[in-house]
Nucleic acid binder design. Structure first.
Lengths: 208, 208
DNA sequence: GGATACTAATCAATCGTTTGATTAATTTTG
DNA sequence: CAAAATTAATCAAACGATTGATTAGTATCC
């Protein structure tokens, strides 16, 4: 008699993602995943083959559709600056909606090991960077932007957002931000968006 | 007759740091550390009490003197902008001189566990941020800087540099940067310094 | 009834740590 | 100074616990 038809496979994925985010890949045991998900340990290998299989599946799920949002922006018939502002907004929204996951992504990316995932994340990021590069480069070519180091500007945009979610709330001593608190998250999101939009506007369009 | 009196304690520290940087804390075994350092496994606990003890010792060693460099800058009798530029230069130099270590620091910092180290890193960063905050805030107060979101500007400076070292060379498709190649490292260091100095100059002093 | 979903028990391997013994170096003593 | 006592450094071996993975068997479903 099956009282609840909750998908064990999905339960494992969700539990694993939660634990990987909290304690890292190496720091999470298959037994923890099984316990957290309510599934038997053998189900992990039954569905995903191995612990790494779970990790890969999680990453694939997240990376899927990673670029679709940006694609739409780029096809808009708006100015380069407006496009860039939309990109910043989109990026901040996406990353701040899943801070734990992005922290994990960065963490595992910074390891030399697991080349398969490394390449996957690399490709996903690379595509997005090319897109932003195109937007800024277009702006420079048509004269609406100053000549700048495009790749460094991108590093600044991405780096700032990443820094906000990785550097702990306590590193922001001016206020006790808690990214797990929806209210605080909203505030900090709007603040980082406003900052980056303002920064890029001034830097890219200021008269010499 | 002792032919070589290489300090085993130091050898363990160096081997452990190298391995922690490469494969992370959890991913590194005490047996690996022993093998790499040429010391017996028991020496790890003999000198440092535990694996975590080794980690703490490494962090302490690095964090020591972390702020002395910035302290000197702040006491200089130069303009706020010049101070900020010196900070950027100092930061880029420091971090790019030890990219692997800073990657590890960020990685372990993004984990919820190991609260002792978490607090230690937090404090070290917090101190540096306060210092930069003071420099920018002074500039705003004396009217030489525009009114900006100071904490976000700091996040931008730190985030950009961190992004450069964490985002893999392949994410920079425009060129095959290799941070392990001294020549490439020099180029990218000067580039990020120039970018951030230029960015802050324009953003903080541009006329509205 | 055969495929699918699931479980408890168990596997070998590895983990961080500890042990008891041995050697090297230093200090104390007569 | 040299013998004895003490301390520090090092080692191989083993500890119990935990790791990811697998087995063989049981329930459930169409």
């Amino acid at each position: 008699m099956k009282t609840e038809k909750i998908d064990k496979k999905q339960a494992i994925l969700e539990a694993a993602e939660k634990l990987f985010c909290e304690t890292g890949y190496e720091g999470t045991s298959t037994r923890q995943i099984a316990k957290e998900s309510g599934a038997n340990m053998a189900m992990i290998n039954y569905y995903f083959g191995s612990k790494e299989g779970v990790f890969v599946e999680i990453m694939n799920g997240r990376i899927a559709g990673f670029a679709s949002q940006l694609k739409i922006i780029n096809e808009d018939k708006i100015s380069s600056l407006e496009k860039l502002h939309k990109v910043i907004e989109g990026y901040a929204n996406r990353i701040l909606a899943n801070t734990a996951f992005h922290k994990m992504m960065h963490r595992e990316l910074s390891l030399t090991q697991r080349p398969e995932m490394y390449d996957k994340i690399k490709d996903a990021m690379s595509f997005n960077m090319q897109l932003i590069d195109r937007i800024i480069s277009d702006g420079i070519e048509d004269g609406s932007f100053n000549k700048v180091d495009v790749r460094m500007v991108i590093a600044t945009i991405m780096g700032t957002i990443t820094n906000i979610i990785i550097a702990p709330n306590k590193v922001m001593p001016c206020s006790n931000f808690d990214l797990n608190n929806p209210k605080d998250k909203k505030i900090i999101k709007e603040r980082v968006i406003a900052h980056l939009q303002n920064l890029t506007t001034v830097y890219l369009t200021a008269k010499k």
